[in-house]
Amino acid sequence: MNDDHEIILPLVIGIFIVILFCVVMLIKGTNTEVYKVSVIVSNSTSDRWVNFKAGLEQAANDNNIRLDYVYTDYIDNIYTEASIINDEISQGANGIIADFCLSEGVEDVVDSISARVPIMLVETDVKAGADIRGNHATVMPDNYAIGRAIGNEVVIDYGESLKEMKVGIVAGNQNQYAMQERLRGFLDATGKMSPEVVWCISENRYTEDELVKTSEKKSADIVVGLDNNSMETAVDYFVAKKGGDVRLYGSGCSKKLIYYIDSGEVESMIVPDDFRMGYQSMSDLAIKLQNRTSALMDREVGYSIVNKENLFAGDNQQMLFPIVQ
């Protein structure tokens, strides 16, 4: 009889512990808070953001986050962008993901936002004050390396003859550190060949008009676009001209540019892993929201070099057309 008690008692205690654990987990699950994260990027409906948005959606789904992907037009004023962010916070956003249009002179903006909610910056880093709370960080590719990769592609194709070539650059938003680094990387990669840079245009609301006027005054043999907007602007103009001898290189990710890679209108293109950028920024922010003692950390995403020959290679296909679960 005593032997039976010695067997039954531990069994009953074990069952009780299992039941208690299940009840606790059930209560915890039903009380899990759903956090809202607002995402603010310039010209949010642009095809350029498709893979980025897919990464955001996948991470939001994986982490039980309510994603608010805010509709925006072209943003070139940091105070306009800050106003949109503040509106989102006042409407209940628990976290922010944003692509700042300006990298310098934004310390107060970053401090003001991160004092209320954590913020992940994407695409470009900014000049910001010390962050002892771990409430802001950046997810972006190595932009200097992207610039060098563009330059290396040009050097590989032209070799010594590059010394005799004239180069035009559509340089993205040069108010962003990211685009400054890409320009520096490109110039460093091509520097030994010393091609003549006949013009360099920074992105603004009138980039297309500036490109037309500038290229008519000084023709270029090679045109480089340092980001997706720059590449699309260059492609729209030079492909439409037809019959020209301009060769196009740069960085981008949109379906339009992929089409022009496939058709041979664009020689090669550096494609940042925008899906990973979206997924990583949302996942890190979710961890921060679920554990306020954790600290956001800067992250780096990769990129691929894409041309007509390797466009449909497995790794490139996965980056260009990610499958969302």
Rank of each mutant, 00 (worst) to 15 (best):
Q91V: 12
L289Q: 04
V139M: 06
M282S: 10
G244T: 08
E196H: 03
Q176W: 10
V50T: 14
S251I: 15
S44T: 13
D274R: 09
L162R: 00
L183N: 08
L187I: 01
F52I: 10
N64S: 15
G172R: 00
G159W: 12
T190A: 11
D125Y: 06
V197G: 13
I89V: 10
A115L: 13
Y303T: 02
I150G: 06
I305N: 09
R247S: 11
N135G: 06
R182M: 12
V266A: 11
I75F: 09
W199Y: 03
I270S: 09
K308Y: 11
V239Y: 10
D125P: 01
N43S: 14
V109N: 05
D227Y: 02
R299G: 05
N31D: 07
R148Q: 10
S254F: 13
K218R: 07
D47F: 03
N51D: 04
Y237N: 02
W199T: 05
V155G: 04
E57H: 04
L187R: 09
R247Y: 08
P272C: 09
Q280E: 06
F312M: 07
P322N: 00
V18L: 15
P195M: 15
E164D: 06
R182E: 08
L9P: 01
G172S: 01
G168A: 06
N204G: 00
P118N: 15
A149T: 13
I201L: 13
V266W: 10
Y79H: 09
V109M: 15
D99H: 07
N291K: 15
I97Y: 04
N86R: 08
T214G: 11
T124P: 01
C22H: 01
D99M: 14
R116T: 12
S46N: 11
V70N: 02
I132M: 11
A98F: 03
V154C: 06
S194E: 14
G159S: 15
G252F: 00
F21V: 10
M282V: 10
P195G: 12
